[in-house]
């Protein structure tokens, strides 16, 4: 704990109080006061190794010493206010869930280039605009024309 305070003081000294507070806010430390999960993650991060960062900005940590096996890998989400597990892209999923020891950056090399859509987090419960509607659904903006006949056009006379 002492080292944490020491490094914080060092940062204030080097960059000034304003910058330090701004950084605190950016890193989500201000949110910690209200969000226990985030606070716990931040405390966990102390002394842990940053394994990688994915394209969304989620940070993946690992700490092999002094942690219970099975709790030694975790993620700190890029979004601090609304985060959920579906924000983890597939390449990192395996590493995070102990399926593989390859990190997401390594797995990204193996991903075929020709196909595959971008990872999208699950927006369920986030409002109608985020919900997936099938191509014939009435709420789908790009709704198909299901008229299967051609009406007679009264053009002539």
């Amino acid at each position: 704990m002492a080292s944490v305070v020491k490094s914080a003081l060092k940062a204030i000294r080097e960059r000034g109080v304003g910058t330090f507070l701004k950084e605190l806010k950016e890193e989500g430390y201000t949110k910690c006061l209200l969000d226990g999960n985030l606070l716990q993650t931040k405390i966990h991060n102390i002394g842990a190794r940053l394994v990688g960062t994915d394209k969304f900005g989620n940070k993946y940590y690992e700490k092999l010493e002094d942690t219970q096996f099975g709790r030694h890998r975790w993620v700190e989400y890029a979004e601090k206010d609304r985060y959920n597990a579906s924000q983890v892209p597939p390449e990192w999923h395996g590493w995070l869930h102990f399926i593989t020891d390859r990190t997401g950056d390594e797995l990204l090399m193996l991903k075929p280039k020709r196909y595959g859509v971008e990872h999208k987090q699950n927006f369920s419960g986030e409002g109608d605009e985020h919900i997936y509607h099938s191509k014939g659904h009435a709420l789908n903006p790009g709704q198909r024309d299901w008229t299967r006949y051609q009406p007679w056009q009264p053009t002539k006379t």
Binding site: R148, Y149, Q150, P151, W152, P154
Partner: peptide, 11 residues
């Protein structure tokens, strides 16, 4: 032919 030139509204 059932799908073309159909009358679909009273006119």
């Amino acid at each position: 032919g059932l799908k073309r030139q159909r009358l679909n509204d009273p006119m």
